[in-house]
Design a protein around this nucleic acid. Structure first.
Lengths: 225, 225
DNA sequence: TTATTACCATGAAAATTTTAGTTATTGAGG
DNA sequence: CCTCAATAACTAAAATTTTCATGGTAATAA
């Protein structure tokens, strides 16, 4: 999953990044209002961790901005302010949850997972698409009940396709979601072909129909044939 | 096992902590309502010892909270109030057992063990998995009837694997369970490999099949081959 | 002391990325 | 409507990087 951490306290930022990266997520970060504003405008995230006490601007404004842009990123507010007012204001402006500092990383993770589950999979841990079943939390995939061994990138790719089923996804969007901002978008990332190929092969060999169409010059579409 | 002791009477708290820590458990504690509330929200425990007469709030509310959060921690109420009403109220709200002060630590331990046994091992003292037998209360492990000498960490690890059999457990989850919150989860704890290795070796040498698979980039899975 | 736990260095295994070569699709010019 | 060059997509395999296993050692606790 792709996560943006907006936090100016350097030590906390780093431990959050280390933890979530270690859990296998793609993480980006911003430490001030301006860069946070830029990130949320330009990119999409599965979840944004937003610290309210931010240099250069009022964190709550970012929520307003997200709403204006009609983004559907999940937002978890993390803040030292534990007044009820702030909490309500945040939730009112569209935040999905609110966590008061100090907190523990395992708790943060649990909440982020809950938000992502709610947003992407209707609160469910398991995505079912015809004969393909994906257990997101257990990172397990099966076709007609038979388990399929996918690597992490293959798994991420499949989940991305499934949460965008029947929509055309561009190569850029895929790259952005799977590799985050370490990836220079001016590069061509032919290696995506490798992962697509491997995923395709494994799913087909497991006995699923060929749901993945390439859209010449654009990207791919995964969905009903 | 991970145990939370919620108790405001300092002397009693300390003797309980000393006793359970001495028994090899990971113990945490809280002395007032607020911090107890925070702890139970943030973490999962194998058993929570809950004193009802707590400064700052009504202890029974914590039970309600646990239920709301859909936690499955075991709860043993310890309280000076020996009225039947309190007891029934507590059990009604989901507590697993009730112990009236004063009590003997050995009695407390027996009840805590019973709760943990019931929660984790279907009330059984002994986990049997193919040729591996684990006596949880006696901390003894045997393979095909031959005893295997495990250290504490190895034992804990094995029990953790067994109570999560056939599921993938992440390195983070393992660390969290084995070391509690003293461990900085943003660190990488490569030494977990050592414990895995030692456990694996001892179990294999004792003649068991190789039930432990590593799941590249994620963690481990212990279960049927 | 001895037993246990944490850490480190090294090599092996697995996954990811790069590279290079092949095939497919498109659209412009004949 | 065809041909063909340009671009895009696909594939296989090599190179690189990451993760894991293991033996040994230092630190700590019993």
């Amino acid at each position: 999953m792709k996560i943006l951490v907006i936090e100016d306290e350097q030590a906390l930022l780093e431990s959050i990044l280390a933890y979530f990266t270690g859990e296998g997520n793609i993480c980006e970060h911003a430490s001030d209002f301006a860069s946070a504003n830029e990130k949320i405008s330009l990119y999409n995230y599965d979840c944004i961790l937003l610290d309210l006490g931010l240099p250069g601007g009022e964190g709550l404004e970012l929520l307003t901005k997200l709403k204006q842009l009609k983004k559907r990123d999940g937002v978890l507010i993390i803040s030292a302010r534990h007044s009820l007012d702030d909490k309500l204001a945040g939730l009112d402006l569209g935040a999905d949850d609110y966590l008061v500092k100090p907190f523990h990383l395992s708790e943060l993770k649990a909440r982020v997972s809950a938000i992502i589950r709610r947003k992407n999979f209707d609160g469910d841990n398991v995505i079912v698409f015809n004969e393909i079943t994906v257990d997101v939390s257990a990172m397990k995939v099966s076709v007609k009940g038979n388990p399929v061994n996918l690597t992490k990138k293959e798994f991420d790719l499949l989940v991305y396709f499934l949460s965008n089923r029947n929509k055309v996804v561009t190569k850029n969007a895929m790259a952005e979601h799977l590799w985050g901002d370490e990836m220079d978008l001016s590069d061509d990332f032919d290696f995506i072909y490798t992962h697509v190929k491997n995923l395709r092969k494994k799913i087909l060999e497991a006995g699923a129909a060929d749901y993945l169409r390439s859209v010449y010059g654009i990207g791919y579409k995964f969905g009903d044939i």
